[in-house]
Structures are given as C-alpha cells and as structure tokens.
C-alpha cells in the first residue's frame, strides 16, 4: 500500500552531472552557514601577498625585465601575484582532502551510497564546490594584489582566460585532494596528508623565484611541474613579467601543457576516487 512516487526524467547531461550539481549546491549553502571557514581560507593567501610583496620585494631580481633598482620591488610584485594565484589554487586540494575525509567519517556517506543517485555525483559535487569557492578566493586575492601595485595589462579577454585556467587547475587538484581524503583513516591524518605534498609541488616551481635561479638539476623537474606552466601562462595572460625561461617544451607551450596536465590528472584521479568511493562505508 506504499505508493511509489513518480521520479524525474533523466536529465540531458546525465545523472552524474545533475546529482553533482545538487551536492555542490548544498555544499555551497553549507559554506554560507560557516563563514568562519571561508574567512580563514582567505586570510592565508592575503598574508602571503603582503609578506612576499614587502619582505622579499626587490630581494629577488627578475632577469630579463631590465629593471632599474627602484622599480625592482614593483616588478617583483607583478611577477609574484600570478605565483600566489597558482599556489593558492593548488592548496584548494587540501580543503578537498579534509572535506572528503569529514564526509566519510559520518554516516552521510552510507546514506548517499544507499540512494539511487549516480555513483560519481558526491565526488563531482564536492570537487566542483571546492573549485567554486576558489572564485571568491581569487577575487579577494586580486583586490589585495591591486592594492600592493599589481596590474593586469594583457587585456580583458586574456585576463578572463587566466582566471579560467586557474579554476581549471583548482578543479583538477581537488580531485587529487579528494582521492587522498578517501584513502585516509580519519580527519586528523587527512588534514596533514592533504598538505604535505603541496609544499614541494608549489615551491619546486617558478611561483616565487625564476627557474634560472635554481640549480640546474632541479630546473627540469620544476619545468615539467604543471604549477610552473600554470603560473607562466597566467603571467603571460595577465601581461605580467615572466622572466627568462630555460628551454623546455612545457615552458614554451605553457597553456597547452597546463590544460593537458589538468585533463590527465582529472581523468586519473576521478577514476581512482570514484572507484574507491563505491567501496567506502562510514568509519
């Protein structure tokens, strides 16, 4: 005598996307409920901008800009901002790791998995919301950058492309973060494991120092690091100083290399994490 309820028709883009949108919508509602969390995720990159701009400003010379000494600090700030953008979006992965580990530690995962929803939707929704939160972070960072003298000189269209590239990168690392979060036994471990790999990833790059200043054995590693190509592409698109590049394919084709790496990372880690998710129960 239990009446069965008519369900909606299959949406055009499939249930994975449609259910993913539902999950991310409520994840974003949750962000509005806990503004403190968002606030502190904004504070860190802002502090980085201020520290690097005033503490290191001018101490790190950017080759190839032909700058006079008094302009050096200002040039460095313009060089620096895309680096901080790149580092910040990379760290979106850490939030994703903790978020996923948190979701797995409650009974919510069991409920989600017992629903007739698409198997990728929870991860798609979470990673999408994590990347979407980066829009606000990028906005606040851009304003801070503007206040310390950073300028976009590459045109509006190029700037839009730069921001989109940063968001694509954020989206791809959130999949890595989610995979780590799924594999961790608890939230505490996840919050450490989610961070450790991000330091070498972002510092072994051109985000803060030109590659030419690195020892020659490190240069190829940094050159193939997608963070380097992301930052370089962003510098070019924003019309910021890029410094001189050593001759490596990724550095000669930074946008293509970045998009390609992101696509590869998403393909690999989405497969891995969705497979893991379908076997996970609440701990």
């Amino acid at each position: 005598m239990t009446a069965s309820v008519q369900t909606r028709k299959r949406p055009l883009l499939g249930w994975n996307i449609s259910d993913g949108v539902v999950v991310s919508r409520f994840s974003l509602v949750q962000t509005l409920r806990v503004p403190e969390l968002m606030f502190f995720s904004l504070v860190q990159p802002v502090i980085f901008v201020l520290l690097f701009a005033y503490v290191f400003g001018g101490a790190i010379p950017i080759a190839g800009t032909g700058a006079s000494a008094e302009d050096a600090a200002n040039i460095y700030r313009n060089y620096l901002m895309p680096g901080i953008f790149g580092q910040t979006v990379a760290f979106a992965a850490a939030a994703s790791t903790v978020g996923m580990a948190e979701a797995m530690s409650t009974g919510l995962i069991d409920r989600f998995r017992s629903l007739p929803m698409a198997s990728g939707a929870v991860l798609i929704g979470h990673t999408f919301a994590d990347a979407a939160r980066q829009i606000l972070v990028l906005l606040v960072l851009s304003i801070t950058g503007f206040l310390v003298g950073w300028r976009i000189t590459g045109g509006v269209w190029n700037a839009v492309c730069a921001y989109l590239l940063l968001l694509l990168f954020a989206y791809s690392v959130t999949w890595v973060g989610a995979s780590i979060g799924l594999a961790m036994p608890n939230v505490e471990t996840a919050s450490t494991a989610g961070l450790v790999w991000l330091f070498p990833l972002t510092f072994l790059s051109n985000a803060f120092v030109p590659l030419s200043s690195m020892p020659s054995w490190l240069q190829p590693i940094a050159a193939y690091n997608p963070v380097s190509t992301l930052v370089l592409a962003t510098r070019e698109l924003f019309g910021n100083p890029t410094g001189l590049q050593p001759d490596y394919w990724p550095l000669n084709n930074p946008t293509i290399y970045t998009i390609g790496s992101c696509a590869l990372v998403i393909a690999i880690f989405a497969t891995l994490s969705i497979r893991k998710y379908t076997k996970t129960t609440a701990k």
């Binding site: 949750q30 409920r33 009974g107 919510l108 017992s114 007739p116």
Partner: peptide, 16 residues
C-alpha cells in the same frame, strides 16, 4: 530505489 536506510551513525548534514 525501493529502500530507505537509517544507519547507525547520524546521516544528516548538520550545517544544513
């Protein structure tokens, strides 16, 4: 599609 599950551990999003 046929079942409802209320697990042993609370399964609501407590921020919502």
């Amino acid at each position: 599609r046929e079942i409802g599950l209320t697990g042993q551990y609370a399964a609501v999003n407590e921020y919502l």
